[in-house]
Design a protein around this nucleic acid. Sequence first.
DNA 1: TGCCGGACCTGTCGG
DNA 2: CCCGACAGGTCCGGC
Lengths: 221, 221
Amino acid sequence: MLRKHTYDDELEQSRRKGQGMKQSIARFNPNAGSDRFDRSNREPLFEKAVTPSDVGKLNRLVIPKQHAEKHFPLQSGGNNSSSTTKGVLLNFEDAAGKVWRFRYSYWNSSQSYVLTKGWSRFVKEKGLKAGDIVSFQRSAAAAGEEERQLYIDWRPRVGPNQAVCSVVQPVHMVRLFGVNIFKLPGSSGDGGGGCNGKRSVREMEMVAFECSKKQRIIGAL
Amino acid sequence: MLRKHTYDDELEQSRRKGQGMKQSIARFNPNAGSDRFDRSNREPLFEKAVTPSDVGKLNRLVIPKQHAEKHFPLQSGGNNSSSTTKGVLLNFEDAAGKVWRFRYSYWNSSQSYVLTKGWSRFVKEKGLKAGDIVSFQRSAAAAGEEERQLYIDWRPRVGPNQAVCSVVQPVHMVRLFGVNIFKLPGSSGDGGGGCNGKRSVREMEMVAFECSKKQRIIGAL
DNA sequence: TGCCGGACCTGTCGG
DNA sequence: CCCGACAGGTCCGGC
C-alpha cells in the first residue's frame, strides 16, 4: 500500500537513463560489443568476503559503509530523501554479461547500507558460500556525467591452506558468531576450493572464518 | 545526518519536551519538582510477574492485553494506522528518576501488545529475572488532555528460593575490556545454577553483572 | 498459501 | 569505558 509505485517508478527511471536498454542488449545479444569481456576497462571498487548472513536467509548483502558511501552514494539526487528512504535500483553486470538488478538502500535502524531485492537470486545462482569473495567494479571510462556501468563478480573463498591468517593464537576458545568452534571434528582442511559443495553449511562457515571474526576487506581499492 | 535516531538522541529529545509538560502538571501538584520521589501522586496501573521470555533473548515484554488496551491505547490518534503499525515510543520514569523510552506496539502475529526497543536495556540494568514483578503507574493528576507521566518500577520475586544474589556461581569467563582473560578449562564446568540450556556464557555474564551492579544501585538509594 | 524482502532491532567486537 | 559498524536476528506486508 505504502510503496505501491516504488518498483515501477524505479524501473521506468532506470529505463529512461538507458540502463534498461543496456540490460536488454546484454541479455539477448551477449556478443554485442567485441569488448564485452574485456576487463581492462574496469576500475575495481572493492571486495567483500561474504558472511553467513550475506548468503543466508536474510536476503541481503551488507555493503561496508566506507565503500558504500564512497562508491554508491544514495542521496545524489539531493532534492529529497526518497533515494535514501526507498533506495535505488542498481544494475550490475556479471562475468557472463548477465545483468543483475539489486535494490540498494540504507537501513536507519542498523546504520548500514545493503543490497536487498535481487541479491538472493544472485546467491542462489552463483552458489555463493560464506567466505566467498564478491567484487565490484565499474567501467573506467570517463563518461562525464553519464553513469558508468557497474560490474559484479565473485570467486571462491580463499582456501584454508592459503593462509590469509597465517598465525592462529593459541587460545582455547575460538568464537565464531557466538559459537565456540575451537574443538571441532574434521578440522582437516577442505582441500578443494570447490563450488560443488555437498558439505554442510555449518562446516563451511566454520572453516571459512576460522582465522578471524572480523570481516575481511580484501581490497579497499 | 548519518546517525539519525540514536536511542540517546530520542531520550534527550523526549526529556527536553517533557519539561514543559511537567511544569503544566506541576500546577496541580505544588510539590512536584521539589520531590520527584513523592509517589503519593501516582496511580497504579497494573503489575506483571515477568516470564522467562520477558527477560530473555526476545527483547520484549508482553503487556497483558487487558491492561494494554485499557491503559496504553495505541490507535488513540485515530487519524491513521501508523501508531498501530509502528507503535509508539513511551517514556517511563523509574524509581531513581531515570527515564526509559520503550517502543510499544502491537504484534499481529501473536495478537499481543509488547514493549520492544529499549526493554532489554531495562532488563539488563535492573538485573530482572523471571518471576520478578514489574509495575506500572502514572501520575494521578487530572491533567486533562495532557499526557500524564508514566512510571515503571520493579521488585524481586516473592516466595521461596528468592536467592537474590546470595550465591555467586563459578564464572568461567572474565572479561577485561571485552576480552575473555579467563582460561577456559576443557570441559564445561557449569555445575550449579539449576538452569538447563545453552546460554551458559551469557547467563554467567548476566549473573556476574547483576550481582555487582545491583549492589551499587541499592547503595545509591 | 509460502516466500521474498522491507523495515525494524540488538549484541558483539574493535577502535 | 564510549561509540561506530555490522552480523545476525525479528516481524510483517505484498505478491
